[in-house]
């Protein structure tokens, strides 16, 4: 761990000013990921700005019938919030599939979006990693890549976004509200995270001087037909090998709207509107589910230890759709 200075912001504008004024400064809320990374010397911020006192912890109704999740609301408070449980059970279930109770009590919604990859090489400063040290190489491509991406990879990086919550948020088409020096802007969840390309050091499209203030959920919550299937190596406290968030709207046994997002397979929660469109108008059934799954995975590419994820993801999609449609 490096030596760093510490500041505390009590209003959002001050936090943004801190970021603008100090190169490399990082915000800290729950600290569940950042402190780990600092202890392993992966993150070496010269300055930490504590944002826990910003007034961003509330969960409130939006005029359009949606719900606003404060960036500093904890994962636990969000998952157990009555409105989330009633109207967005997919999100509640997804959050509770992640981490452990202790971590969810500390982790905030904003911080969770910024969770960094669990790639072994990224986490070990004794090895090269393009995400940690651009240009140093990606040993995962020819190395231990069982946990790694099968979609949207690049020659520079095959890391995954490891979190659960964002996968449900992608299916729910949430919108991330951010504040920067020039004011506020909205980033659709699907555009928040990015693919690694030639710049894998950037996990997302948040600018270095921007603060996440809230995550907005649209009105449609798929409360009736939804599922989150998380396939992992143990029952809890494990990152997804593959996860699927599915939300359906159905009428008379037919699917009218479908949303599907995959976790654990790419540098971002993976969605494909074409695959979703294949489901619309179809009767719920194994063939339709399989066709959507095949389409969703059509560009998947396996590496030495993770090729199994392609078929696993297809099966997980089928399972999620089956569960969602029969719920």
């Amino acid at each position: 761990m490096n030596s760093f200075t510490f500041a505390r912001a009590t209003e959002p504008a001050a936090a943004v000013r801190e970021l603008a004024a100090h190169d490399g400064a990082q915000l800290v809320a729950g600290g569940t990921n950042l402190l780990d990374l600092m202890k392993e010397n992966v993150a070496r911020p010269p300055r930490l700005v504590d944002i826990n006192r910003l007034p961003l912890a509330q969960i409130e109704e939006r005029p359009d019938g949606g719900l606003r999740l404060g960036a500093l609301a904890t994962n636990a408070d969000t998952a157990y919030h009555p409105a989330v449980q009633a109207r967005y059970p997919l999100l509640a279930r997804t959050i509770l599939a992640g981490a452990s109770p202790q971590l969810r009590n500390m982790a905030t919604n904003g911080g969770n979006l910024l969770q960094r990859t669990r790639c072994y090489y990224f986490y070990d400063v004794g090895t090269p990693c393009n995400k940690r040290e651009p240009g140093s190489g990606c040993p995962a491509i020819a190395g231990l890549n069982r946990m790694h991406a099968i979609l949207g990879t690049s020659e520079q990086c095959i890391a995954t976004y490891p979190g659960d919550m964002a996968v449900a948020l992608a299916a729910l088409e949430a919108v991330v509200q951010v504040q920067g020096p020039d004011g506020e802007r909205s980033i659709p969840l699907g555009e928040f995270h990015r693919l690694p390309g030639d710049t894998p050091q950037f996990d997302n499209n948040l600018r270095p001087d921007e603060l996440i203030t809230a995550i907005d959920l649209p009105r449609r919550g798929f409360a009736k037909h939804h599922s989150y299937v998380k396939v992992r190596d143990r029952s809890s406290y494990a990152f997804a090998l593959v996860s699927v968030a599915a939300g359906l709207e159905m009428e008379g046994g037919k699917i009218t709207t479908a949303r599907l997002a995959l976790g654990g397979v790419a540098h971002k929660p993976w969605r494909d509107p074409e695959a979703e469109a294949l489901l619309v108008g179809q009767a719920a059934g194994a063939d339709a589910f399989r066709a959507a799954a095949d389409h969703l995975l059509r560009d998947a590419r396996g590496y030495r230890f993770n090729a199994f994820k392609i078929e696993l993801a297809r099966r997980a999609v089928v399972r999620a759709l089956r569960e969602a449609s029969t719920a």
Binding site: Y120, P139, R234
Partner: peptide, 25 residues
Amino acid sequence: TLSDHAFGRFMNHNLAEYHIPVNKD
């Protein structure tokens, strides 16, 4: 414990990646 033979190094050297059962298992 997984070793990357290119480096001759154990890579999953923490308790998040080196799995033992949790209570639920």
